[in-house]
Every structure is written in structure tokens, then in C-alpha cells.
Design a protein around this nucleic acid. Sequence first.
DNA 1: ATACTTACAGACCAATAGTCTGTAAATCAA
DNA 2: TTGATTTACAGACTATTGGTCTGTAAGTAT
Lengths: 251, 251
Amino acid sequence: MKQAGSRRLRLDPEARREAILDAAQALFRTHGWDNVSVADILDAAGLSKGGFYHHFSAREDLLSALAQRVAERALAAGDEARRNAEGGAVARLNAFLAGSMRWQAENAGEIRVLIDILAHPGNDLLVQRLAQATRGVVIPELLAIIGDGLADGAFDVVDANVTAEIIFNMTQDRSPVLADAVARASGGHFEVAVERLGARLRVEGAACDRLLGLSPGSVVLSHPDNIRRLLTGLINVKSDLSTRKNTSVED
Amino acid sequence: MKQAGSRRLRLDPEARREAILDAAQALFRTHGWDNVSVADILDAAGLSKGGFYHHFSAREDLLSALAQRVAERALAAGDEARRNAEGGAVARLNAFLAGSMRWQAENAGEIRVLIDILAHPGNDLLVQRLAQATRGVVIPELLAIIGDGLADGAFDVVDANVTAEIIFNMTQDRSPVLADAVARASGGHFEVAVERLGARLRVEGAACDRLLGLSPGSVVLSHPDNIRRLLTGLINVKSDLSTRKNTSVED
DNA sequence: ATACTTACAGACCAATAGTCTGTAAATCAA
DNA sequence: TTGATTTACAGACTATTGGTCTGTAAGTAT
């Protein structure tokens, strides 16, 4: 019985959705997740409740939507870099990862929002949902490329090392948003890469033991996690050095 | 003009506060931070709003209160271990840290709540407040002990190594609750310990460079963070091995 | 015994997430 | 062109919940 207004202009739904996400992202970034009400977002986006809940089923939906959007963009950046790369599988993989990492570095602010939100309290629920959202986009693409190369033996140990370095670097430092998703979703392939690194470590184990002042074999044998832990340190150092030199890997 | 009831019994204020915190902690643990309302807590604690807001000024206050309580208990556990320890400064320090770590391991569930809450979204505010709450209890005590030893040269390089190992181990893996607070609040003393480790690393730098397949000096000189990163791996491995052997350090 | 403080009870208020009803514009059907 | 249906909203309404305010009984000091 009441007059329903429509003073505000009607947009292309896709554009409206983007506008809402943009507004939400900006507000979350400056004020934090739980200091921003839907009304605030609506206000910034020039929209009413009805409109919002037409596009999103709940406030929390903004989380996965935002995450997915960032994931898609990071993926697209990597894809573009890969298309422009020449060389074999490893070179193109590196291009993909480097391109994606560069985008993520350049858009750290945008990603920062998601880090904050990702760390939402107690909600394993939220983290899972977010991991799902990103997993659906980035991880399969990523692991398909890497997994192919590893599975059919196209990469030798050195290549696997490099691959592992880049993944690890990406997941540890440069791309914390994806770290969780990778850790949860990577499954076998990532382990394979780490195992390759472990093999190399075993070869150099004696030197390592000496460096640590331990009896021979201690590092490798004492505890399974030790391999990974040590690798964390080694990989970060080496990949940092190699990206610094802008090393490109042949395949 | 309305009759004010007092059917519920009146408790010792300290006990009431503890009861509220216990109830809150249990609920947060099972349902997560933002699925628990103050009414739920009140219900579980057998209290009314007025009572709650007499003891706590806001819902968020539960965070720092809970954090502080855990910090105090972790500190108390360490203190008791230290009192029962014989030996010099380093031995007592190790006893303190080991005792605290053991308590934290045994009460991982209790701490888990705080990890969840600590990661509250966007709120650097909350994190800061939490860091302050823990800083006020644990850090000064901790750093006073370590700092004294370091400042007056009572520890030689090896002792500083061990100290740094334990701190690092404690903050990285075993005690994530305190990690942030330590990182933010430790300031100079922690850096001193790390610097000592860096000194040792420099001595063994050649071996390290060789292990990494880099030109001499690369690891130490290339990037300041590299030292710390590498140490993360080394320290974790070595301290894991030494605690496994239940090594005790003389002073 | 009287004043004062402490530890609560419970009504009340304001903000806010989500629902529901209604409507104008766009799209499709004839 | 016109009528029917769907889409994209507007805005009133509801329910929950964090926090305030007023009041009072129990304890404490004088």
C-alpha cells in the first residue's frame, strides 16, 4: 500500500554488485570488519536494504565474495603473465607465479582487508568458507600446472626445488591470503615438492648437521617436521636471493 | 520504584569474576566469539546484566581479561618451576621457560580460545589491547631475567644462543598466544639475543653459503631478514633436538 | 543505628542484521 | 502494441543484542 520509491538509478546488476563490493572493501579497510554496518555500506553504495539483500544473502557473504574477487584477479594477473611468457612448462609456471605475486604485492592493501577478515574469530566456519572460495579458483589452476610437471617427471630435482621455492615463498610471505587455502588444498602435490627438497637436503645432510653442531643424520632423522622447518628457513633465503637476481629457470 | 530482586546468591567478587570468565571461556570455546551473547554468558554464570557490567565495562573486556588470566597462569607456572630449580641464572631461566611452556602445552585448549579471539578481524585495536594486557604481565618478567643476563655479560655467546633458541621456540611454535606480544614488546632485548645468534651464524657463514649453493657471504649480507629467516629454521630444529634430549644448560 | 559502598536485578534504549511487502523498470510473449 | 512475468530495487517492520539507568538488598565503616 505504500509507495515504493525508485529515486536511485537502476544499474546493470553486475556493476551494482561490484559497486557494493567496492564500497564494502573500502569501508572494511578503513574501519574494520565489525565497525561497518550494512547500512554504512548501503549508504556508500547508494542503495537500500532490499537491494543489498537481493545481491547478497547475508553480510557474511561479503567475505567470500571479496575473497573470490581477489583470488580471481590474482589468477588473472598470473594468467596474463603466463600467456606472454615464452619457454617451456617451468618457465611458464614461473611466469604465472611471478605475475600473480607481483599483482598481489601491488595490491597489498586490497589483500590486507581479506587478511583481517580471514582471521575472523573462532570461525573455523568462515575460514573454511573462505578457503573454499579461493580454492575453487586459484588452487586447481596452480596445482594442475605444477602437478603435471611433477607427476610425469618433466621436472628434475632442481626444477622441483625451484617450484617448491616459489610456492613456499608465495604461500609464506607474499601471499598470506592464499597460504591457508594452499596448505589445506594442496594435498599431495605440495608434499611432493617438499619431499624433493628433502631429498636434496639429505644429500647435503652432513654439512647441515655440522653447521648445527649435531651428530651426523640428526637433522634429517630426528623428527619429520624438522625437514619442513629447516626448509622454511632455507627456502625463504634462497628464493629471496634468486628473485632478487631475477633468475629465470630453464626447462 | 520497582522491586529489585536478589534471588541469586551474592558471591565473593573475585569468585564471581572468575565464574564469569570460566563461563565465557567455555562458551567461546565451543561456539566461537560472535556466536555467544552476553546473555548466554550471564545465563551460564547465573547472573544478570547489571552484575556483568559491574565486573566488566564491555563485552570486549572479556578478551583482555581472559588473555591476562592465561598470561598470569603461564607466568605462575614458570615461576614455580624456577623456584624449584637449582643452578645459576641460565639454569633458572631455562626452568622458568620450560615450566611455562609445559603449562601452555597442557592447557592448549584454554589457550586455543585466545588464539581464536586474538585473531579478531580488523581490530588492530583488539590485538594491541591484548598485547598490552599480556605485555603487562609476562614480558617484563621475562625480559628482565634475560636482559639482565645479556646486559652484564653474564651469558657468553653460547648461552645467548640457547636463550634465543628457547625464546624463539616459545614464541614461534609452542606459545602462539604470546608470540605477538613478544614480537611487539620485546624490543631491544630480543634483538640482542638474535644478534648473538647472527654473530655465530656469521662465523659459520661460509658453511652455510656452501650448503645453500651461494657465493660466500650471500646469506649474511644479502638481506637483513635473511638472518632471522634462516635462524627460524635452525633454531627450531636445534632446540627441538635439545629439548628432546632434555639437555640442561649450565651457567 | 546511620551513612555509605558494593554487588547485583531488571526495565529500558539504541543499533543493527535480516524479513516482508510493494513497485517501477526491464524483458518476454502474444 | 500490449499484457504477463521477472528483475532490481525501496522502505517499513521485526528480533536480537550490546549497553545504560534506576533501584535495592547486603555488607561495611562510623
